[in-house]
Amino acid sequence: MPHNILIIDDEDDIRAVAALSLETVAGWEVATANSGAQGVERAESLQPEAILLDVMMPGMDGRATFAALQQNPRTAAIPVVLLTAKSQSSEREQLAALGVAGVLTKPFDPLTLPGAIAAVLGWDT
């Protein structure tokens, strides 16, 4: 059975490329959300195996979205992988300290994105 993942990112292009990568390269089922608020709603209703979450979004950013997911009993156990343009190790370490499953950086290689997510989550590819 294919893995299923929810991508939460405000940038249409990033959502589209990531979704295409995960569907085509890995054969995963992908749902998307274009904002933190929509992502929390979709996570609750869809119950994905994991969430790929952008850090920098207007309104409800990745940190606030992750906090909302953690406070909801229906979504608290879903592993979250943050996607960030911040490439300095100190910034990535601060994000990892939030309790997320992992942190990946943008820009990402669409061909290796599924493997990177699978490695963070301990999934077989």
Rank of each mutant, 00 (worst) to 15 (best):
M1Q: 02
P2N: 08
H3D: 00
N4W: 01
N4M: 03
I5R: 01
I8C: 08
D10Y: 13
D10N: 13
D10S: 14
E11K: 11
A16W: 14
A16K: 13
V17F: 00
A18E: 03
A19M: 09
A19P: 06
L20C: 07
L22C: 07
L22Q: 03
V25N: 01
V25D: 02
V25G: 05
G27V: 01
W28F: 06
V30N: 00
V30F: 02
T32G: 12
T32M: 13
N34Y: 12
S35Q: 02
Q38Y: 10
G39M: 09
E41V: 13
R42A: 15
A43L: 09
A43E: 13
E44Y: 06
S45R: 13
L46I: 05
Q47R: 15
A50C: 08
I51R: 02
I51G: 07
L52Y: 05
L53T: 00
L53P: 02
L53N: 00
D54N: 14
M57E: 13
P58C: 09
M60F: 09
M60Q: 15
D61F: 12
G62E: 02
R63A: 10
T65Q: 02
F66S: 04
F66I: 03
F66V: 10
A68D: 06
L69R: 10
L69E: 12
Q70E: 14
Q70V: 04
Q70C: 11
Q71A: 15
N72V: 01
T75H: 09
T75Q: 06
T75L: 02
T75V: 02
A76Y: 04
A76F: 08
A76G: 03
A77V: 02
V80T: 15
V81T: 00
L83A: 13
T84A: 08
A85M: 11
S87L: 09
Q88P: 00
L95A: 11
A96S: 14
A96F: 04
A97R: 12
A97S: 15
G99L: 08
G99D: 09
A101M: 03
G102F: 06
V103R: 07
L104P: 06
T105W: 04
K106P: 12
K106C: 10
P107T: 01
F108S: 06
F108V: 08
F108T: 06
D109A: 05
D109R: 08
D109K: 07
L111K: 10
T112V: 10
L113W: 07
G115Q: 13
G115A: 12
A116H: 11
A116N: 09
A118W: 09
A118S: 12
A119S: 14
A119H: 10
A119V: 00
L121S: 01
G122Y: 05
G122N: 07
W123K: 03
D124S: 14
